[in-house]
Design a protein around this nucleic acid. Structure first.
Length: 494
RNA sequence: GACCCCAUCGUCCAGUGGUUAGGACACCGGCCUUUCACGCCGGUAACACGGGUUCGAACCCCGUUGGGGUCGCCA
């Protein structure tokens, strides 16, 4: 049987380096075995999914050279490859489970579930999860309530005793008591499937042979195994990759490390270097070779050689590798087109000129005035990050909240959208824009003065802008975990 | 808290019963050099702990500790 691996990202945020990491190993395995690599977009979360993110994911993967044989953009024999376009398929399978008594309708409200969760937490229950209230509602009653238009979800019936045994390619046998697995929702009240149902149905229908994904999914494998059994299908091989980590060893997160592939691209990293770097996370070439391409990996790659300790994503080493590529693989002649594609092209230079042009007295002022648009970080000194009426803590809070607003509040990254965010911030903090914006010049330009803030940020783009604000927070000493939590609460953030 | 996973220098990897525990990043010296970078030479630095198994454990088993993940109508 032909090998088929897949990457199944959900378009709910910026393209994550962890996604590229899984794509790399997934594609490697397919290519090595003469199989196919499939891209499937898991957009079953209606609130958070966004076509803009899907486009960004596709762009970034292509930039890294991680292309696919079948996917939403190019189609293929097992499509559609976007879950939101497969709703009838899921409905059919849910009905199958329902009619066979493997699943049931649940009418519990979100409020009841939330209260129950709180109570479990308060009681210190070891077994949390759905309490099974609706599990024994007679079929006829359920039908009547559904006919009456009562909102409901569908849950799968999980065994109450015994244990689930499954095999992970890297870890061997893994066991989990069924009593620790609750009745998972498989169909939401909006008619969309949850991850658990969709992933099983699609992996089967798309004839995926190896599921290569992050370790965070191990605990839900029993649910998936159960679903495979209910449908009478044979599960594919499970292979859970270690999670990329922050320097403090927690799961890689944008709060502690740049995680967006777009950031790395915009900051001037080469795709071949980033891909190479990901290849040395948990895996290595023979003889300690550190610089290698995808094609060089193929003959040596074995899934079973992957180390399980979660590797820390080390920016320093990535920079070193990137430098090697620039030094060893490029000449002035070949570097120029790369530089042009990156930022040194007429459209971008023109957009920079639009914000710095009026400030030039001679043409020679161009480089100095434009430098911030052609670099990664700015290394702001604490003095440039001062604001009238705010102490350092206040500035950090301001920066943090601006980051949140900039992430969510700007659908279109342009001057007007950014202005709106800053006006909101100004009201929120009760500070005049002039005073409030001062530290942002420090963060964004690395100096107390610079081109107009909003227009400048619009040119700089979201990835570099956010990164610089984030670095400014760090330059001021950072925000403690406790303080972060308090701020999240204060500003209604999750 | 319960469950699941993991455990070699600060970091990334090598090492799968017998090694002075190796390489790379970072760091510290020195050399090269008009500066810096590169390059070269050298250095600091690790098998988490405790029990087994064995003639012999970084490597196998058990426990402890530590770290991570999961406990959503998010994926």
């Amino acid at each position: 049987m032909a090998f088929r691996t897949r990457l199944a990202p959900s378009p709910t945020g910026d393209p994550h380096v962890g996604t590229a990491y899984q794509a790399l190993f997934g594609k490697l395995w397919a290519v090595k075995n003469g199989g196919s690599f499939i891209l499937r977009i898991e957009d079953t979360d209606r609130e958070r999914s966004n076509p803009r993110h899907e486009k960004a994911i596709i762009d970034c993967l292509k930039w890294l050279g991680l292309t696919w044989d079948e996917g939403p953009d190019i189609g293929g024999p097992k499509g559609p490859y976007r879950q939101s376009e497969r709703l009838p398929i899921y409905r059919k399978h849910v009905d199958m489970l329902l009619s066979q008594g493997h699943a049931y309708s649940c009418f519990c409200t979100r409020e009841r579930l939330e209260t129950a969760r709180q109570e479990q937490l308060a009681r210190g229950d070891s077994n949390r999860g759905y309490d099974g209230l609706c599990r024994n509602i007679p079929h006829e009653e359920a039908q009547m309530r559904i006919a009456a238009g009562e909102p409901h979800v569908v849950r799968m019936k999980t065994p109450t005793e015994g244990e689930c045994v499954f095999t992970d390619l890297l870890r061997g046998e893994i066991r989990k008591e069924w009593s620790t697995v609750d009745d998972q929702v498989i169909l939401k009240s909006d008619g969309f499937p949850t991850y658990h149902l969709a992933v099983v149905v699609d992996d089967h229908l798309m004839e995926i042979t190896h599921i290569i994904r992050g370790e965070e999914w191990i605990n839900s494998v029993p649910k998936h195994v159960l679903l495979y059994g209910m449908f009478g299908w044979t599960p594919p091989v499970f292979c859970h990759l270690p999670l990329l980590r922050n320097p403090d060893k927690s799961k890689l997160s944008k709060r502690k490390n740049p995680t967006s592939i777009q950031y790395y691209r915009r900051a001037g990293f080469l795709p071949e270097a980033l891909l190479n770097y990901l290849g040395m996370m948990g895996w290595s070439m023979p003889e300690g070779v550190e610089k290698f391409t995808f094609n060089e990996m193929v003959p040596h790659f074995e899934l079973s050689d992957i180390r399980l300790g979660g590797p820390v994503f080390d920016l320093d080493k990535l920079r070193w590798l990137n430098a090697r590529y620039i030094r060893e693989d490029y000449t002035p002649e070949t570097l120029l087109p790369v530089l042009s594609e990156w930022a040194l092209n007429p459209p971008y230079i023109e957009s920079v000129l639009r914000v710095v042009g009026d400030r030039m007295e001679t043409l020679g002022d161009w480089a100095r005035l434009s430098a911030m648009f052609f670099s990664d970080s700015t290394d702001p000194s604490p003095e440039t990050l001062e604001a009238n009426g705010l102490d350092a803590e206040g500035v950090k809070e301001l920066f943090q909240v601006s980051l949140w607003y900039l992430e969510e509040g700007v659908e279109q990254w342009n001057e007007e959208g950014i202005r709106a965010v800053f006006e909101k911030l100004s009201q929120e903090f009760g500070i005049k824009p002039r005073d409030m914006n001062a530290p942002f010049y420090g963060a964004l330009c690395g100096a107390k003065v610079g081109p107009p803030l909003y227009a400048g940020m619009a040119v700089l783009g979201p990835d570099l802008s956010r990164r610089r604000i984030h670095c400014a927070i760090e330059a001021l000493g950072g925000i403690s975990g406790k303080r972060q939590k308090a701020l999240e609460k204060k500003y209604g953030r999750g």
